[in-house]
Simulated scan of single mutants.
Amino acid sequence: MASHSGCPFCEIVGREDPDAREVYRDHRVVAFFPTEPATLGHTLLVPRDHIENIWMLDSPTAAGLASATLVLASAIRQAIKPDGLNIIQSNGEAATQTVPHLHIHLVPRWREDRFGRIWPPETNYSEFEKDEAWERLRSAVQNSGQNG
């Protein structure tokens, strides 16, 4: 497994962090509690290889992350009994990624928790702006050859 010197998540993957509260490990991924959880049961899921963001992610690792996310979501529901669950994955500083090692947050939620909203209550994009973004994205998908 490829690791990156100084990466705190690579230290957990390499079992070099004795304080890590690990909850899951397989040949592709590791899951553990963050040191400052947003809610009790908040779990981070990372690839064992040092992959900085989603744009560097390969399909087999993505499949492993998706499969482990399902396992962890079920375990959180059974063990923690939340009212809901946020699954959050951020890429880049503008998206609040603070550790440059791809990670997925599984955040148990309760109706009155302190986490708060993750989406703005409303936006004010014009129909022209939305159409322009839609056309650009649709074209990029078609040009990628990945459009079924």
Rank of each mutant, 00 (worst) to 15 (best):
A75K: 14
R48L: 09
F32N: 10
P100I: 03
L44V: 08
G41S: 09
P18K: 15
A75Q: 13
A20W: 05
R25A: 15
A2W: 00
A133E: 01
V99M: 04
T39I: 07
Q78E: 13
G145Q: 06
R138F: 02
P100N: 10
P120R: 15
S144C: 05
R114Y: 00
A38N: 02
S59N: 06
E135H: 13
S5Q: 14
H103A: 12
Y24M: 08
Q97D: 11
P60F: 03
S5I: 10
N124D: 13
Y125D: 06
S126V: 05
T98E: 11
W119A: 15
I51P: 01
L72T: 08
N86R: 15
V13F: 03
V107R: 10
E36L: 07
A68T: 07
N91A: 11
L40G: 04
R28K: 13
P82D: 14
F32P: 05
K130S: 07
F9D: 04
G92D: 10
E16G: 11
H101S: 07
F128K: 11
H101P: 04
D113N: 04
L40P: 01
V107G: 09
I12Y: 02
D49W: 00
T35F: 06
A38K: 11
S144D: 00
E135F: 04
E135Y: 05
L72Q: 05
E127A: 14
V46C: 14
A79D: 11
I51L: 02
G84M: 11
V107H: 01
H50L: 05
A2F: 02
V46E: 03
Y24V: 08
D58S: 05
E127G: 06
F128N: 09
E135N: 10
R15K: 14
A31C: 04
N143S: 12
W134E: 08
I88Y: 08
I12P: 03
L85C: 13
G41T: 09
R28E: 08
G116Q: 05
H105G: 12
Y24S: 04
A68H: 06
V141H: 06
A94W: 02
A68G: 01
L106H: 11
V13W: 03
Y24L: 14
H101C: 07
N53F: 00
L40N: 03
G64A: 06
A63F: 01
R109D: 07
V141Y: 10
R15F: 03
P108A: 14
N147S: 12
S90H: 07
A66H: 07
Q89M: 15
E22A: 11
H42K: 10
L72F: 08
L57N: 10
N147T: 02
T123V: 12
R109A: 10
L85S: 12
A2N: 12
S126F: 03
I87Q: 12
D131Y: 00
W55G: 07
K130W: 00
D113P: 05
I88R: 13
S74D: 13
G116R: 03
H105S: 13
P108K: 13
E132I: 00
M1Y: 07
R25Y: 02
H4C: 10
N143P: 00
S90G: 11
S67L: 07
G116S: 08
T98C: 09
F32L: 07
K130G: 02
N91W: 06
I118K: 11
D131N: 13
A2M: 09
N143D: 12
Q146H: 09
E135D: 10
E135P: 00
Q146A: 14
E93H: 13
L57A: 08
P121I: 05
H105K: 14
I54E: 01
F33T: 08
W110R: 15
W110F: 15
